[in-house]
Simulated assay, not measured.
Amino acid sequence: MRWENLEAVCVSPWRGRDKGQELERLAALAGEASADAAVAMESANLPVPIIEPASPPPPPDLTAAAFFDVDNTMMMGASIFHFARGLASRKYFATSDLAGFAWKQVKFRVGGREDKDTVSSAREQALSFVAGKTVKEIIEVGEEIYDELMADKIWSGTRALAQMHLDAGQRVWLVTATPVELAGIISRRLGLTGALGTVGESVDGVYTGKLVGDLLHGRAKAHAVRALASREGLDLRRCTAYSDSQNDVPMLSAVGTAVAINPDAGLREVARARGWEIRDFRTGRKAAKIGVPSVLGAGALAGAVAAGLAYRRR
């Protein structure tokens, strides 16, 4: 076989229609797996003690819900990087490996460059550092790492928005490329309904280091939201989604109301063009609202000046 023909065979999955079809297949598979995992985690939640509320709870609104991205939307920075830092401090891998891991993940998930090398590298490394570990162990370690490195990085303004939906009787899910088990910990600690996240393959409770489908990123998030809505009986026209990234435009476009939180330049441009609401907590001020307000109206929101300053110092 001539070299140019061999090259065409090797790279053809990343060209033209084949590339798009394969990425879409993996995104759909990731979305379905994430929705299944979210439903399973929700049904497995332990019952909480019944405490007499100060006022009657709102009646449940079963067809409306809210979906929140995590990185730079609900939490300052990348949750997977905070998690990796915690694992490095526990000798799960060398601290010297952290910089390279962080750069590759941030380049893909924040920069959103979906070229062949970046996608392959991000997919291969996303859960490679937990290969051979048990799911139970990683969840227990994740609980510790959340307390150490994540709890003080929650944007109070975004947290207030999530509580606004809960107070209206709506369910609230996180939607993130971070591992679904870690996403579930964050959701549980914030008192939310559940989480959609990247699903790692496991056999007999032990991670293989491979993904089910792909990272829950970009189009995969939209697939996950639609799959969960189908399972939970949600009317997406009555749902709201929040994100900071242009990469999440597919998810934001899948619901009736989209809100840009701490938006990057690309998402800010899209939000202005489409009349989406914009909220910015990075400067301790509320950015000007664009277009029609959210489905629940403008609520009281707390800024995060101190947290922002702490993040910049880091």
Results as ranks from 00 to 15, higher is better:
residue 133 K to H: 05
residue 52 E to L: 14
residue 237 R to C: 14
residue 312 R to H: 06
residue 258 A to Q: 00
residue 264 D to E: 03
residue 188 R to Q: 09
residue 298 A to N: 06
residue 230 S to Y: 00
residue 279 R to M: 02
residue 139 I to K: 09
residue 272 R to W: 07
residue 139 I to C: 12
residue 194 G to I: 15
residue 187 S to N: 09
residue 103 W to C: 15
residue 93 F to Y: 09
residue 215 L to T: 01
residue 77 G to Y: 00
residue 294 S to R: 05
residue 198 T to V: 03
residue 255 V to A: 08
residue 40 A to M: 09
residue 298 A to I: 12
residue 256 G to H: 06
residue 305 V to L: 12
residue 197 G to E: 08
residue 260 A to Y: 02
residue 177 A to N: 04
residue 152 D to G: 15
residue 236 L to I: 07
residue 310 A to I: 14
residue 193 T to Q: 08
residue 51 I to N: 10
residue 223 H to E: 15
residue 248 D to G: 15
residue 286 K to W: 05
residue 256 G to M: 07
residue 12 S to A: 15
residue 22 E to M: 13
residue 216 L to Q: 05
residue 227 A to I: 09
residue 234 L to H: 02
residue 176 T to C: 12
residue 110 V to S: 04
residue 275 G to L: 02
residue 52 E to T: 14
residue 284 G to L: 06
residue 87 L to N: 04
residue 83 F to V: 00
residue 231 R to L: 01
residue 31 G to T: 02
residue 98 L to Q: 03
residue 185 I to T: 05
residue 55 S to V: 15
residue 173 W to K: 08
residue 249 V to Q: 07
residue 263 P to A: 05
residue 241 A to Y: 05
residue 15 R to K: 12
residue 35 A to I: 11
residue 113 R to W: 06
residue 148 E to R: 11
residue 158 T to A: 15
residue 136 K to T: 03
residue 235 D to G: 13
residue 119 V to H: 12
residue 69 D to S: 10
residue 185 I to C: 00
residue 97 D to C: 07
residue 142 G to I: 06
residue 66 A to Y: 13
residue 314 R to P: 01
residue 164 M to G: 13
residue 263 P to E: 01
residue 143 E to F: 06
residue 175 V to I: 05
residue 310 A to E: 12
residue 24 E to H: 10
residue 19 K to T: 05
residue 83 F to M: 06
residue 132 G to V: 03
residue 132 G to A: 00
residue 289 K to M: 12
residue 223 H to W: 15
residue 104 K to V: 15
residue 85 R to Q: 10
residue 105 Q to T: 13
residue 103 W to P: 11
residue 217 H to Y: 15
residue 288 A to E: 11
residue 7 E to Y: 08
residue 223 H to M: 11
residue 129 F to E: 02
residue 164 M to D: 02
residue 226 R to L: 11
residue 167 D to H: 14
residue 79 S to M: 03
residue 101 F to E: 04
residue 254 A to I: 04
residue 6 L to P: 07
residue 216 L to Y: 03
residue 200 G to W: 06
residue 22 E to C: 12
residue 225 V to K: 06
residue 237 R to S: 14
residue 69 D to P: 09
residue 118 T to H: 08
residue 198 T to A: 04
residue 21 Q to T: 03
residue 164 M to K: 10
residue 167 D to R: 13
residue 69 D to K: 12
residue 250 P to Y: 06
residue 24 E to M: 05
residue 85 R to D: 00
residue 85 R to S: 06
residue 149 L to R: 10
residue 175 V to Q: 02
residue 251 M to K: 10
residue 269 E to R: 13
residue 65 A to K: 07
residue 297 G to D: 01
residue 31 G to F: 00
residue 120 S to R: 01
residue 62 L to Q: 04
residue 87 L to A: 02
residue 254 A to V: 05
residue 238 R to W: 04
residue 7 E to N: 04
residue 116 K to Q: 11
residue 171 R to V: 06
residue 154 I to E: 03
residue 210 K to G: 00
residue 122 A to K: 08
residue 51 I to Y: 10
residue 267 L to K: 03
residue 201 E to G: 03
residue 236 L to H: 05
residue 171 R to K: 14
residue 128 S to I: 02
residue 204 D to C: 09
residue 128 S to W: 03
residue 120 S to M: 01
residue 49 P to L: 11
residue 58 P to T: 04
residue 133 K to L: 03
residue 173 W to R: 05
residue 70 V to T: 15
residue 18 D to E: 14
residue 149 L to K: 07
residue 193 T to C: 11
residue 133 K to S: 10
residue 113 R to M: 12
residue 81 F to S: 10
residue 186 I to D: 09
residue 210 K to H: 09
residue 16 G to I: 07
